[in-house]
Design a protein around this nucleic acid. Structure first.
Length: 551
RNA sequence: GGCCUGUUGGUGAAGGGGUUUAACACGCCACCCUCUCAAGGUGGUAUUCACGGGUUCGAAACCCGUACAGGCUACCA
């Protein structure tokens, strides 16, 4: 038994499997050629960012389009940051957006699916340790006894001397410590971390091809990065990435641009083990315009950074995905025009076409997409959408919706079933604001404001209109009747004539219809009045008129 | 300080040496249509691709500098 073996056994006693054992346990996936294996691998911090969502959607599209696998992995190696309920929240979001992973592990449900389990990193500790142990035996990793204070001193010194910061070269104090001495210190109970014994040369460059950014030239890593933490023996992100994506046979890693600077580390790690690197797609950061400056969207400052924002507002989930796809590939919109009914996963996503600089997430654009999307739904779909939204966010309104189902659907159907439907609902939370006056529960005649008009004139018009109103009128008959009323009261029916010489008239049809509109809805702007009156029905109409006349 | 990566309109962007007088979409503005809105229609919205040099008959596109912006530089992911 050589010394390094003794050290490895001391650090990791009782590990029974080898790397080869694990590789045998998790064999190649049996997939068609070019099938992509992607993963959504969030840290359970309890919230989800629009940037995470971008990555997640890309992962999903890549896998679905190629008949590959999209799986969920819980990256909880930082135990101090894990938040209770975070995984449940992620599950909720994936469900809400209908992007359920094919492989996952939900501890709370005691439910695991997939042949590469566990999918929770904290449950994979022994696997990582087996790989690290191998490195120690090979002399490619070593225990480091640097304390936090010592490292602070090193860093400050490096900063002062304008040198690169990090534990490398002569700063790696323990990389060449005699193995016996390391064994001795561990036996004495000293705290240590395991570091990679880097063999890279910072002055040497290597070429790396990123699917989104193309080829880049990066310096080799020469930093002895920590691969295992002293606190709990869990690996750092870099090492978990190596082991998991190797064993789970991930083909494409989608992650934020901030990871580009870690590529040299990952490159060295994969090279050290002789594993094939997955392909990488480093996606742009999502930026936001703040006054005159553009900055990274912030979960603290920008409510729209959090995915909860979109649910609370009631954007249809597919509208949000459409907006995200547009950010991902700007040719998506053109594709969508040609394939109005295709699912977004049919789109051939091209990493090369991603913006390499940051992407501004434009809420105006989202609103437009969402409006368009809602306008093309059926009245039943809109009803279902508002109902399920209001059940969570506006219980009172949901009761009303349930009570007046057909009536509500009729409202949503105004100018809907036509080639170019109305677009006035941007998200579900807005629907109540735009339709409340249709419900007697919300409409209040005493709050109708006619101060812009002469009240006696209003009452005359309403009284006269009541007499001629016929609920069976067609739209044309309805309007003709209003015109007749106009003529008899000296209001212009022809807008051009009225504009030419308004002094000849008391007002125009616009005044008359608006008076009717206000009396019935209390608003000056509504969708087509005829449709509204058809839906309100005779009883409600007469009731509302009478209340105004009596005032 | 070091290492990377960017920079095309109000926004997302297309374009990778000459059909670019810079596509498309959103936004904005004007007009038209019109019972108010919404929608729709028509037109407008970068004489120019951060700046300075160079290569070339020709550059937004290729090369070199500069400026600016962003990321990383943790026993966080």
């Amino acid at each position: 038994m050589n010394n390094r073996q003794e050290l490895a056994d001391l650090v990791f006693p009782g590990l029974t499997k080898t790397i080869a054992d694990y590789e045998a346990m998790y064999p190649e996936r049996n997939l068609k050629e070019n099938a992509k294996v992607t993963r959504f691998a969030p840290s359970p911090t309890g919230f989800m960012h629009i940037g995470h969502m971008l990555g997640c959607v890309i992962d999903y599209v890549l896998a679905k389009k190629s008949n590959g696998v999209f799986y969920l992995r819980n990256e909880d190696t930082d135990t101090s940051r894990t938040v209770e309920g975070a995984v449940e929240y992620i599950r909720h979001v994936l469900e809400h957006y209908h992007m359920e992973p094919e492989e996952y592990e939900y501890r709370d449900l005691e439910e695991t699916k997939g042949n590469y389990a566990p999918y929770i990193q904290s449950e994979r500790k022994e696997i990582y340790q087996t790989f690290i142990k191998h490195l120690i035996i090979e002399g490619k990793a070593y225990p480091c006894f640097l304390t936090k204070e010592e490292m602070d001193v090193i860093r400050e010194g490096q900063a002062r001397d304008k040198r690169r910061i990090g534990i490398y070269g002569r700063y790696a104090k323990y990389r060449d410590l005699p193995v016996e001495e390391a064994i001795e210190r561990i036996k004495n109970g000293e705290s240590y971390t395991i570091r990679l014994k880097s063999s890279g040369d910072f002055n040497r460059k290597f070429k790396f091809n990123d699917l989104a950014n193309g080829e880049m030239e990066l310096p080799e890593n020469d930093i002895d990065i920590p691969i295992m933490k002293s606190k709990d023996g869990l690996p750092t992100y870099h090492f978990a990435h190596l082991v998991d994506d190797h064993l789970m046979h991930t083909t494409h890693v989608v992650r934020g641009r901030e990871w580009i600077s870690s590529i040299p580390v990952h490159y060295e790690l994969f090279k050290t083990f002789g594993f094939k690197m997955p392909k990488y797609i480093h996606i742009p950061l999502i930026l936001k315009k703040d006054g005159d400056t553009i900055r990274k969207i912030s979960k603290r400052l920008d409510p729209e950074a959090r995915m909860t924002y979109y649910e609370e507002k009631g954007y249809p989930y597919l509208a949000v995905i459409e907006a995200i796809m547009t950010i991902a590939n700007s040719n998506y919109e053109a594709w969508r025009e040609g394939h109005p009914d295709a699912r977004f996963t049919e789109f051939e996503f091209s990493p090369k076409k991603m913006s390499s600089s940051g992407a501004l997430f434009d809420l105006d654009k989202l609103d437009n997409i969402s409006k368009n999307y809602i306008s093309h739904l059926t009245k039943e779909e809109v009803y279902e959408g508002v109902l399920s939204w209001s059940k969570i966010y506006d219980e009172e309104f949901s009761k009303i919706l349930e009570k007046y189902k057909d009536y509500s659907m009729a409202i949503y159907n105004i100018e809907r079933e036509q080639k170019k439907p109305r677009k006035d609902y941007t998200y579900y939370s807005e629907i109540k604001e735009k339709t409340w006056y249709m419900y007697d529960e919300y409409f209040d005649s005493s709050k109708v404001d006619f101060s812009a008009y002469d009240i006696e004139e209003v009452q005359t018009i309403l009284t006269k209109y009541k007499d001629i109103y016929n609920e069976d009128d067609s739209a044309e008959e309805w309007f003709n009747r209003i015109k007749e009323l106009c003529t008899s009261l000296n209001y212009a029916t022809d807008m051009k004539a009225y504009k030419n010489d308004s002094s000849m008239y008391k007002g125009s049809v616009v005044d008359v219809t608006n008076i009717l509109r206000i009396a019935l809805t209390s608003l000056t702007t509504t969708p087509d009045l005829y449709s509204i009156m058809q839906i309100l029905g005779k009883t409600r109409i007469l009731q509302r008129f009478d209340k105004m006349i009596a005032k």
